Each structure stands twice: as C-alpha cells, then as structure tokens.
Amino acid sequence: MDKLNIIVASDSVGETAELVARAGLSQFKPDQCEQDITRYPYIESFENVDEVVQVAEDTNSIIVYTLVKPEIRKYMETQIREAAIKSVDIMGPLMRILTDELEEKPFYEPGLVHRLDEAYFNKIEAIEFAVKYDDGKDPKGIAKADIILLGISRTSKTPLSQYLAHKSYKVLNIPVVPEVTPPDNLFDVDPNKIIALKISEEKLNKIRKERLKQLGLGDSARYATEQRIREELDYFHTLVNKIGCTVIDVSDKAIEETANDIVNIIDQNNFSDLKKEIDS
C-alpha cells in the first residue's frame, strides 16, 4: 500500500476519533507507507454523511467515526455498508452497552465531553485565582474577580475563597485592617460583587484567643483584646457603609452555609443587573 487514508468523522470536533486513529497508527512503523488523516467535524445531517462517504470512496479511505445521534449513526452505518467501505464505529458499541447496563436513555448530545473538560479547567483556573489573590496580595485581581470578600482577621475569608473556587467562582479576599488603606480600585467595581463578612465581638474574641493558644502565645495579646476587636469592627462597618455592599453575619455559620448564601446573593445580583440591562 502506497498511502493509508483515514477519514475521521464526528458530530463534535472529532478529537476523540482522531486520537484513537493516531493511537492505532502509532503501533506500526511510520515508514511502512504514507499516512493521511482528514477530519470532518460537526456531522449533523444526512448530506454531511453522504459527503464523507463519497470522499472515502474516491480516496479509498477508512472511516473512523464518533456519532452520538442514533439516526445519523444508523444512516452512516447503512451508507458505509452499501459502499463497502472499511470503518470503525468508536461510539456506537459503547453507547449500546452503557444504555443496557444503566437502563437509561442517553442525552444523545454531541460535544458533552468537551463541555465537561471546559468546566474542569474553569474550576482549576478559579482555584489558582483564589490562591494568587488571597489575603489582598495583588489588587490588580479586583477587576477580574467574580466575588470579592471583605473581612477582618479570622472571618474565614481564605477557606470561603477556596470553597467558592471549587464552584468555579473567581474569588479575591481583602483583609480589613484599620492601619491599612484599602486598594483604590476597590471603590471602582460594582458593589454587588462585594460581600462583607461580619462577626460578633464575642465570637471573634473566642476564636482569636484560641488561635493565639495554637501559636503558643498568651491570650492577652492585643490581637485578641476587646478594645482591638472593637476598633477593627468599627473600621469594618465604616468601610462597608462607604462601599454599600452586602453584609453577611458569619458568627454562627459553617463555611458551606456562608458559601451558599454568597452564591445566592451573587446570582440574584447578576440576575437583577441582567434584567435592568434588558429593560433599558
């Protein structure tokens, strides 16, 4: 054989079928004959199938295909059989076995695996974002964030950022400290995406004293005194009022509960903004 022609046909991008074809070819010496792989993506009609089959006949090609829609796959099978073309159906046999085993009808929707991949990479990107912009490290991330968390020390900003990142939200958190001026661009973003984390004096005092013990320090350090906590909370409320953002009391809430509240607020704010835009 002087040349081996393979046509990859798919109702999505065709990446899976091409990978299988190349994996098969990799098991043979590349110098045995010239190899050519041509990809035909987005096979969505009988006319598309006819074109692939005609090209395969004209070029003496093998067809490797992944088609999830039953009517298109069945038509491809029929046309291939009538034209006596060598072929491999990658998706069909597996779909039939899975349907029998799961006793459930498939979605029959092309491209779902790529959407899952996209969702996975969005999550990874959000996690990396939360790490990069944790604890106010870089104010440049403010404009890029989906959610901005404000709070004094020990209000679970970092755990919340990571938890929300696993839901694919890009979260930046900023510590509120009386001696530190907030970034200027914090006042330029939409306050609807800023969530301030409030906590009671009593709860915070207890948490900070416990934290000092864990660090091997006495619980009388200024960090845990009532006066210092009151100073920080007063400054927190002044800043929040200036920004005009939503405040959530995290005093007696688990991370998961607070995160769900944040998501609901952000989603509702996004919906309201979209409605205003449509109405205008």
Rank of each mutant, 00 (worst) to 15 (best):
L160H: 09
S168H: 14
D146W: 13
P178V: 08
I152G: 04
Q162S: 14
T155Y: 08
S156R: 05
P159E: 09
L160S: 09
P159A: 13
V177D: 07
A145G: 02
D146S: 08
N173L: 08
D146A: 07
I152F: 03
K167L: 15
T181F: 05
L164H: 01
S161T: 10
E179N: 12
Y163P: 02
P183D: 08
H166M: 12
I147V: 15
I147E: 02
N173H: 05
P182I: 07
I174R: 06
H166D: 09
H166C: 10
L164R: 01
I148D: 09
T181D: 15
P159Q: 07
R154G: 06
P183Y: 10
P183W: 08
L164Y: 00
L164K: 02
I152L: 14
N173R: 05
S168E: 14
V180T: 14
V177L: 12
T158S: 02
V180R: 07
V177A: 06
I152K: 03
L149P: 11
Q162A: 12
K170C: 00
A165T: 01
T155H: 03
L150F: 03
P175V: 13
L149M: 12
T155P: 02
Y169P: 06
P183N: 10
I174E: 07
S161C: 07
S168G: 04
H166G: 05
K157V: 06
P178Q: 11
V176F: 10
V171N: 04
L150M: 04
L160C: 12
P182N: 14
I174K: 10
L150K: 07
Y169N: 06
S161I: 08
K167V: 03
P178H: 06
H166R: 15
N173A: 10
Q162N: 14
I148K: 06
A145Y: 01
V171T: 15
T181H: 13
G151D: 00
S153L: 02
P178L: 04
P183M: 12
L172Q: 14
S168N: 14
S161V: 11
G151E: 00
T155C: 13
L172E: 12
Q162C: 06
Y163L: 15
Y169D: 07
L164W: 01
K157D: 08
L149G: 11
A165M: 00
R154L: 11
L149K: 11
S161K: 06
K157P: 07
K170I: 00
L172P: 04
